[in-house]
Design a protein around this nucleic acid. Sequence first.
DNA 1: TTGGGTGCAAACGGTTTGCAAGTAC
DNA 2: GTACTTGCAAACCGTTTGCACCCAA
Lengths: 139, 139
Amino acid sequence: MSEGYRTKQRALVLSLLQRAGDRHLTADEIARSLAAEGNPVGRTTVYRCLDRLVEQGVVRKFLLGEGESACYQYQSGECHAHYHLKCSRCGALLHLECAYLDGMAAHLQQEHRFVIDPAKIVLYGLCDRCLQQQKEKPQ
Amino acid sequence: MSEGYRTKQRALVLSLLQRAGDRHLTADEIARSLAAEGNPVGRTTVYRCLDRLVEQGVVRKFLLGEGESACYQYQSGECHAHYHLKCSRCGALLHLECAYLDGMAAHLQQEHRFVIDPAKIVLYGLCDRCLQQQKEKPQ
DNA sequence: TTGGGTGCAAACGGTTTGCAAGTAC
DNA sequence: GTACTTGCAAACCGTTTGCACCCAA
């Protein structure tokens, strides 16, 4: 269970993500925040620390949309598997824990022999608000 | 229902995608193929034609994974809504038409007021083969 | 002393933009 | 003539790599 080196920089990155809680942070936001706190860490190093933290399973990486930069989130023990719903129109990101979706995962595994990774999945579509707006003035 | 201009270049791009059938092509592959056929089209123009074809609903754009370039597919009338399963390990891309997933879409709409766009969705995970391999030699 | 870690600068790669020239009607 | 399209070159932007330096064991 070697957790590898725990350098000052890596500890700083991890600490920031832990404090961010639910929020997803980009590498850039992490670099900026650390700098703002008086603990500047080089951008390259931020990326490398994140890579290692992801390898170790301490942090999760999310790719949430076209042209957007990757986001990272601290993976606490009590965090449930959840799915992401992303509105293609307004960009809103919703988190969803849903038994039906868990059922879908089981179905795919049993019937299609495919084991999905819920954390990596983003369901794109339209949120309620944008749906209403679209009805009023399409386009 | 103005379908806009139908320039030579746009017709070439569309024709190639139609001939590609099910296959997803990247902008780069399109540019190369057209050049190989003796109809070179500038890369910029390929991107712009694709944008317009997507706007018109004639072509669909897919983002299939981290660091990978966008793919495009001709959207023929008889094409059913299908989902993409992508193996995170070997990169295999599977197409899936599945009533259960259609049910999921309905569920999300009714219970969570979110209308997903199946074409944009990629379910990441492990395919059967990689799952077997993983059991034999993990990592 | 030695192997990993750091971080600046530069490269990378897909995509977009600026702009001058071309084309259709 | 006017409005749109083309395509080269250059910019963009998130990310990665090269490399010299640093630090801890």
